[in-house]
Write a protein that binds this DNA or RNA. Structure first.
Lengths: 228, 228
DNA sequence: GTTGCGCCTTGACTTAAGTCAAACTTCAAT
DNA sequence: ATTGAAGTTTGACTTAAGTCAAGGCGCAAC
């Protein structure tokens, strides 16, 4: 696909005119990262932001003693690194490819120039940053105000909404990664999955989790209920 | 002060032309909230955002069983509620005045119209949201990757940087609020302040904390050291 | 196949931090 | 000054979740 139509197909850029897409196309750079490769590390000088064309990327931080907190796992068409473009000069977290991941790269300078001339684009970016803020707010809430069973319940409910009308979630992240996403460790996650199974809230399959009691999980997520 | 010069004096609007300030002035509404009054609650329909003229505002969430996590405590000239303007239609957290707090209110619809015509304003908002994202990222890091002494150390260091060249911090928030800001409870905070005093890292005064060992606190904040 | 290496689970133990309850301090208001 | 309410400290106890270590499972490569 040529660059302009590629850009036009990205949700973030919906609503832009063909001319505007062409301008974006003129500054975008195709890049390719293979599994495990990092896009940037926390603290790196920020030179631009990325949009995923395929594959998966995790945004994360490590503690000095090696614990990992994953902020997001992003997929096709999702942007990342965008917060560093408009304020501050270094990336606030690290980004690593979880699979073969082709991306588009937009250099800060040129992209900001475009925004200056294109309020539609500016509003799209504002909406994007606001969404991110919202997601991070939810993460803080989970970490600070819920215990691990509640976080897990909330996570499962979100996954099944976005994933399929049926209540079976195909696990596309390893349980290790899932633990890091929930701000805990694999052992704890394993134990809590077991407790949830015992209480018939879920059924754990080989690469999947089936939700048996949505109401029960919701109660858990909202703190109205505890695991036995 | 007339509205236009008031607006021109707000850092967020630095760099805007007098004409642009006048346009903002035309849509801004002065409001006044007294101590304890809420601006909005989590989940409320978002009708606009605010800029603080004086006083203090806390942005927070409550857990169902009453625990509070404070996201920010904001002061003069700082905006809040801005994330809800550009995406989603409800506020993601609650806002309450901690003192007598006059504010400017900007209604979503009219403000977005201005942005559409004014890329400088758009870039200012983008920078603002990016800063917020950065701060929230740091909060997640603190909650997930640091234990309470590390969070407290980081907090004290930030306060003394922004507060005075000297290493004495005048406590402008109650220790209750400080605990909620750090994602813990007053009892725990109290105990850890004591342990820090015991190790001569700080000295706690009546309404102040004096930093005795900046290096030691930094080590604590970065996880290179533990309290005895 | 079977070998080997991640991933996942399980158990016993430790620990940081929360809970509950009581006492003490501060400060503002009568 | 006295009262009272809120903020703060302290102690004894509980608990959620992390650590450490061992063992099992599943899958890919030879």
């Amino acid at each position: 696909m040529d660059m302009t139509s590629l850009i036009a197909s990205i949700p973030l850029f919906q609503g832009l005119s063909p001319g505007q897409c062409a301008q974006l196309a003129a500054i975008a750079v195709r890049k390719y990262h293979s599994k495990g490769q990092t896009f940037f590390l926390e603290g790196d000088e920020a030179e631009g932001f990325y949009i995923i064309l395929a594959g998966r990327v995790k945004i994360f931080k490590l503690s000095p003693d090696g614990k990992e907190q994953i902020f997001h796992i992003l997929e096709e068409h999702e942007p990342f690194g965008e917060a560093a473009v408009f304020a501050g000069s270094h990336y606030p977290a690290s980004a690593q490819a979880l699979a073969e991941t082709p991306v588009l790269f937009f250099p800060t300078r040129k992209f900001v120039d475009l925004i200056r001339r294109d309020p539609t684009l500016a509003l799209a970016m504002l909406a994007l940053l606001s969404m991110r803020l919202r997601k991070l707010t939810a993460l803080v809430e989970n970490l600070s105000l819920k215990e691990v069973p509640g976080r897990l319940a909330a996570y499962l409910l979100v996954q099944c909404d976005g994933n399929s009308p049926l209540a079976t979630i195909s696990l596309d992240v390893s349980k290790n990664q899932m633990a890091a996403l929930l701000g805990t460790i694999p052992e704890t996650l394993s134990r809590i999955l077991k407790r949830m199974s015992d209480e018939k809230l879920i059924k754990t399959g080989p690469r999947s989790i089936t939700i048996l009691d949505k109401r029960g999980l919701a109660d858990l997520a909202e703190g109205n209920r505890k695991l036995g």
